[in-house]
Amino acid sequence: MTIHAPYPIGTPGTPWGAAEVAAWLSRQTRRRSYEADVLGMLETLRSRYEVVQYGRLDYPSGSYPLFAIRSREWRDELPCALVTGGVHGYETSGVHGALQFADRHASRYAGRVNLVVAPCVSPWAYERIHRWNAEAIDPNRSFRENSPAQESAALMQLVAPLRDRVLVHVDLHETTDSDESEFRPALAARDGVAHVPGEIPDGFYLVDDSEHPQPAFQQAVIAAVAKVTHIAPADARGEIIGSPVVAPGVIEYALTRLGLCAGITGAPYKTTTEVYPDSPRASAEQCNAAQVAAVCAAIDFALAHGMVKQR
C-alpha cells in the first residue's frame, strides 16, 4: 500500500483557518506576467474588437484589471457565443487558446453571432500557475449568487445581461499532472478530509451538463479535436476523473448546481474542455490548437442546429 505524506500545511482532518490560508499564501510566488501574456495580446486586438474592462481584482499581493473582448459590429438580433479561459489560472492553454481563437478564427463568425471572449478570468492565479485565487478559493466552484470569489462574481456580472441570449458557451480548461501532485492534496487538506489518489487521463475530454445534456453537440466537438490531438480513453472502471464516460471522451457534471463556469448562462449548447498538457503525445501548440478547434466546432454546431429566443 502506498503511503502518501500529509500536505505540508495544516493538521490532517482539520479544515484550514486563517492561519493556514496565510501560510499557504506565503508559498505562492509570481512566475509569469498577466500584463505581458494577456494584456499585451489584447492591445493587438483592439483594432478588431471592443475590449471592455468588466472588473478588477484587488488583493494585498496585487491588483488586476479584468478584460473581455466583444464583437465590434454587435447586432442585437444575433445570438451570442461566450468563450471563457483561465478560470483556473494554471490551465495555460485555456488562456492562450481563447486568445488564439480571437486572433485567428473569430472573424469568420462576423455577422453570424455576437462573440464575447473572457480569456483570463483569474489573472492572479495565472501569474502563480495555481488553481485557486489569493484566498484559497476555487473560482470554478464559486459561480453562484453571493459568490465568495471576486473572479467569479465579476464574470457573472459581465454575462448577466446576456444570460438568456447566449447560444453556446465553451469554457476552456486543462487536467494536469499537478492536479494529483498538488491541487487535489491541497483541497483535501484545506477541507480537512482525506486525500484519495486518483488517475489523470491521458488526452482531451469534455464535460457536458448532466441536467441538459447535448450528446450530438459534444460528439461534434470531440470529432473536431480528434483531428488535432488524442482523446482520453476511459479508465478500467469506465470513468474519467471518477465520472462515468457517457460517450467517447465525454463525462457529465451538474454544471449550475456545482457552481461551475459553464453553467452561468442559459445556453442550450455548453461544454467544458479538458486538455492534457503533460502528455508525451501533445505539445503546447497542440493543446492551444485543441482548444481553438473545440471553440470553432462548438460555434459551428450551434449555429447549424439551433437558435435562442431573443428578448
Rank of each mutant, 00 (worst) to 15 (best):
A160Q: 14
V308F: 03
H130W: 12
W74S: 02
S107I: 11
L260P: 00
C261M: 03
T256K: 15
W124K: 07
A289D: 15
G86F: 11
V52C: 05
H212V: 10
Y205T: 11
L255C: 07
C287I: 06
G13L: 01
D179G: 10
R144L: 15
S243I: 06
N133L: 09
P185K: 15
K309Y: 04
S107K: 13
W132L: 13
L45R: 13
P8T: 12
E35K: 06
R48Q: 12
E174D: 07
Y34T: 03
A304P: 00
L155I: 07
L115W: 09
A106C: 01
S243F: 13
A5R: 12
D164K: 15
V292S: 07
H4C: 13
V95R: 01
T84A: 01
R131M: 01
K309E: 14
Y276C: 11
W132A: 14
R108V: 15
Q219L: 10
A136S: 13
G266P: 01
A153P: 11
R112Q: 15
V292T: 12
L162T: 08
E252M: 04
F204A: 09
E135G: 13
F67M: 10
A118R: 13
A23H: 06
G203C: 03
G306K: 05
P60S: 11
C296Q: 09
K227E: 08
V246E: 03
P248D: 10
P233D: 01
H230S: 04
I251E: 07
F183W: 14
N114F: 00
A236Q: 08
T44F: 06
V21L: 02
S178M: 12
D208L: 09
E151K: 01
V250T: 05
I137C: 05
V52T: 14
G94A: 10
I222L: 05
E151I: 02
Y49P: 02
H173W: 01
L303S: 06
P280C: 11
R163L: 08
V295K: 04
R72A: 14
Y54D: 09
R311A: 14
L162V: 07
A19S: 14
S243T: 10
D177R: 13
E182F: 08
L42S: 02
S210I: 09
A68Q: 10
A154V: 07
N288D: 11
V159Y: 14
S26P: 04
G249Y: 08
A36R: 14
N146A: 13
R144W: 10
V170G: 02
N288R: 11
